[in-house]
Design a protein around this nucleic acid. Structure first.
Length: 429
DNA sequence: GATCCACAGGAAATTAAGGGTC
DNA sequence: GACCCTTAATTTCCTGTGGATC
C-alpha cells in the first residue's frame, strides 16, 4: 500500500528542484530575448512612430511554432507602453486574439468590439456583418485615443477556413479611412511561411506592408535560451549543462521549437520533483518527452467528437483483428456502419464525410493514411495507426458510449481478400 | 492507348442552431 | 411569431487520379 504520509514527509525533506517554475512557461516574457535582436529592432523601428502619434505600417510576422513571434511582440509592447507613460503620451490600445479560437470574420469583429467595450457586448451571432463593422468603427472612435494595435495570431487559420475572411481582413486593413479619431494597426502572425500565397492580392497589399521572418532556433541558440531561463527557474545544483544540451538537441530536431524545449525542461524538473530526486538526470528528460507525446495524443483523442471516435474505433478494430490485410477507406466505412448501428442516437455519416474525418485524423498524426492506386482496382487510402493499440484503448475507454465495442470483431473483416503484389488485401467493394 | 475501378477531394447546396430585429 | 443573419456540419454532385488490365 502506498504510504502517503511518508511520501509527503520525504517530499518536504528532499531538496527543492524549482526556484520559480513559471519562468519556464511560454507566457513568461523574460527581460532579454536572445537571438531575436534583428526582429525586435525591425518591429521597434516600425512602431516607434506611435510615439509621435502617427500610424505605423501594418506588419506580418512569419515563423514556425516556438520561434518567439508572440514573445517578441509582447516584449516590444511592454517597452512601447513604458515609453508612452514616461513621455506622457496616450498608451496605445492592444487587442490580441488567436484565430484558432476566434475563427470567423464575424467573431473577429465582435471580439474586438467586446474587448474595447465589454459593457455593451456584440452578440456571438445574429447581427448582419456590416452592422458589426459599423459598431466597431463607433467603438474605436469612442474608446481609443491614438493607435489601436490589433494582433491576429494564427491568421492563416482564419483565411483558410473562410473565403469571406478576405473581405473582413480587407475592410479591417482599410478601416482607418472611416475613423475620425482612432487609428488602427494590424499585426498578423502566421506559422505558415508561404501563407502569403493564399492571400487575396488586395488584402496582401493592404496588410503586408512590412514582413518579418522568424527563423527556427538551432541547437546552440536553444541551449542559450534554456540556460538563461534555467538560471532563475531552478535551484543551484538541480541540473547540469548536460541536461540543457539534451533538451536543446531534442527540441532542435523538431524544427527548433523553443516552447517545446522549455516544456521538456519543465516537465523533466517536475518528474524529478515527484520522484523526490535531488536533481534532473537524462532519464527524466526522456520520460518527459514520452509523457508530453502521450499527453498530447490522450488530450486529442478525448476531445474528439463521438463520430470521429467511432471511426478511430473502426480502424482500431480492423487493426486488432486483421491478419496481414491492409486497411482501406471503403472497409473502414463498412466497419464504421457496423459500429454506428450499435451506438444509440448516433447518426450515419456519408462516406465523403468519413473520408474527410480520416484525413483530419491523418493530419493530427494519430494515423497514417497514404493514397495508393491499385490500378483497375481503384485508388484509395491505406491506413495504419501511429500509436500502439493498447494506448488508443486507454485513451478512448473513458467514453461510456464505446465501452462495449472494444472487443467487437468487424464482420467485414471475414469477407474475401484479394492479393496484390504478393500481399494480402481486403477485397475492395 | 483506352478503359476501368474506388475512391480523393473541391465546390456548391442543404440543414440546423443560435441569435438578432421588427 | 415571422423573418433575417451567420456559422458549422454535413450531403450531394462532380471531376480528377493513377496504375492494372484489356
Amino acid at each position: 500500500m502506498f504510504d502517503i504520509e511518508n511520501y509527503f514527509e520525504n517530499f518536504v525533506k528532499t531538496n527543492k528542484i524549482f526556484e520559480e517554475r513559471n519562468i519556464l512557461r511560454p507566457e513568461f516574457v523574460p527581460k532579454i530575448l536572445p537571438h531575436r535582436d534583428i526582429q525586435i529592432r525591425k518591429i521597434a523601428e516600425i512602431v516607434a512612430c506611435t510615439l509621435k502619434n502617427s500610424k505605423p505600417s501594418n506588419i506580418f510576422l512569419f515563423g514556425k511554432t516556438g520561434t518567439g513571434k508572440t514573445a517578441v511582440i509582447n516584449y516590444v509592447k511592454d517597452h512601447l507602453n513604458n515609453q508612452c507613460r514616461n513621455s506622457d503620451i496616450h498608451e496605445p490600445k492592444w487587442v490580441s486574439l488567436n484565430c484558432q479560437q476566434v475563427n470567423t470574420g464575424y467573431r473577429v469583429l465582435a471580439r474586438i468590439c467586446n474587448d474595447l467595450d465589454p459593457d455593451d457586448p456584440v452578440p456571438i451571432a445574429g447581427w448582419p456583418i456590416d452592422v458589426v463593422f459599423d459598431k466597431l468603427i463607433e467603438k474605436l472612435d469612442t474608446f481609443v485615443h491614438g493607435i489601436c494595435f490589433i494582433i491576429l495570431d494564427e491568421i492563416d487559420i482564419l483565411v483558410k477556413k473562410m473565403a469571406k475572411s478576405h473581405d473582413i481582413l480587407y475592410n479591417l486593413a482599410r478601416i482607418n479611412s472611416r475613423l475620425k479619431h482612432a487609428k488602427v494597426n494590424i499585426i498578423g502572425i502566421s506559422n505558415v511561411l508561404n501563407f502569403k500565397n493564399a492571400l487575396d492580392p488586395r488584402v496582401l497589399s493592404s496588410l503586408g506592408e512590412e514582413e518579418i521572418v522568424f527563423p527556427a532556433y538551432n541547437a546552440n541558440e536553444l541551449k542559450e535560451i534554456l540556460n538563461q531561463r534555467a538560471n532563475s527557474a531552478f535551484q543551484n545544483g538541480a541540473l547540469t549543462l548536460e541536461i540543457i544540451s539534451l533538451c536543446a538537441a531534442l527540441a532542435a530536431k523538431e524544427h527548433g521549437d523553443a516552447r517545446k524545449a522549455l516544456d521538456l525542461l519543465r516537465k523533466a524538473g517536475e518528474l524529478a520533483e515527484r520522484r523526490q530526486s535531488p536533481n534532473i538526470t537524462p532519464d527524466f528528460v526522456y520520460f518527459a518527452q514520452d509523457d508530453i507525446e502521450k499527453d498530447k495524443m490522450k488530450e486529442y483523442c478525448e476531445s474528439l467528437p463521438l463520430q470521429n471516435k467511432t471511426i478511430l474505433l473502426s480502424i482500431y478494430s480492423m487493426q486488432k483483428y486483421r491478419s496481414g490485410n491492409a486497411i482501406i477507406t471503403g472497409d473502414v466505412y463498412t466497419c464504421y456502419l457496423e459500429l454506428q448501428k450499435q451506438i444509440p442516437g448516433l447518426n450515419k455519416l456519408s462516406q465523403r464525410r468519413v473520408s474527410e474525418i480520416i484525413r483530419e485524423l491523418d493530419l493530427s498524426g494519430i494515423l497514417n493514411a497514404q493514397i495508393k492506386s491499385n490500378g483497375r482496382y481503384g485508388r484509395t487510402k491505406f491506413i495504419n495507426l501511429n500509436i500502439p493499440l493498447e494506448n488508443l484503448n486507454t485513451f478512448l475507454i473513458n467514453d461510456n458510449r464505446l465501452n462495449d465495442l472494444f472487443d467487437y470483431r468487424p464482420r467485414c473483416i471475414e469477407s474475401n481478400t484479394t492479393c496484390f503484389k504478393g500481399q494480402k488485401y481486403i477485397k475492395l467493394g
